[in-house]
């Protein structure tokens, strides 16, 4: 199973040709200056924006192409956003359970699974707290658990440690690396932090200069 992006990503007046291939268990790091199209590429893979031209395919089936477009909710993609975007009115546990509930799990089962995931990312102690009361590191762990909860086929991480203090990053990197490599899913990580890229990824794609 591999994810292939071969086309033009575009947002507003910006556009860029992107050609990358992502193998399972071998995280790809997207690097480049601001405005080079890293986040736009992630949005296209997630299905939040369409490609201007070209295709995105997962394991041979086209997710985005001239004649086909699989919407975000049907792609089986997990995303950790730069600003995390945890739902503010839900507890950490219900944030993690959200994707499972959308996939059809009962409330009881979704919460049970969400609690196990929070434990696996070391955030079970914040299960009943709302995002506003979490530290950057805690929120990041919850966001990671939320993205992994529906067992995605692809995991996308946009500046995953932007809100985390420097001391907490090594532990989170190690956790993320073990989860991503261990689960054998395709993953793409965007970061300006060289340590993130070198510790977390096996392949680096440089999108070059700003578009």
């Amino acid at each position: 199973m591999s994810l292939v992006v071969d086309g033009v990503v575009a947002r507003g007046a910006f556009s860029r040709v992107v050609s990358i291939s992502i193998e399972p268990g071998r995280p790809v790091g997207l690097v480049g200056p601001n405005g080079s199209g890293k986040s736009t590429t992630l949005r296209a893979i997630a299905g939040l924006d369409r490609l201007a031209s070209g295709t995105i395919s997962l394991d041979g089936s086209v997710l985005d192409g001239a004649d086909a477009f699989v919407p975000a909710e049907l792609r089986g993609v997990g995303v950790v956003f730069q600003t995390m975007r945890l739902f503010p009115h839900l507890t950490a546990l219900d944030n993690v359970a959200f994707g499972l509930r959308c996939a059809g799990a009962s409330r009881h089962d979704a919460r049970g699974q969400a609690r196990r995931l929070l434990t696996s990312v070391g955030a079970d102690h914040v299960a009943d707290r709302r995002p506003a009361t979490l530290s950057g590191g805690e929120a990041q762990r919850v966001a990671l658990a939320r993205a992994l909860a529906p067992s995605p086929r692809v995991l996308l991480l946009d500046e995953p440690f932007a809100s985390v203090d420097a001391d907490s990053r090594p532990a989170l990197r190690a956790l993320l690396r073990s989860l991503v490599v261990g689960s054998g899913i395709c993953s793409v990580i965007v970061s300006h932090d060289r340590a993130d890229i070198s510790d977390l990824t096996d392949v680096v794609v440089d999108l070059g200069s700003a578009g």
């Binding site: 299905g47 994707g99 529906p150």
Partner: peptide, 10 residues
């Protein structure tokens, strides 16, 4: 967008 990206329907 986050809701969609997590598998949420409209």
């Amino acid at each position: 967008d986050a809701a969609y990206a997590l598998g949420g329907t409209r």
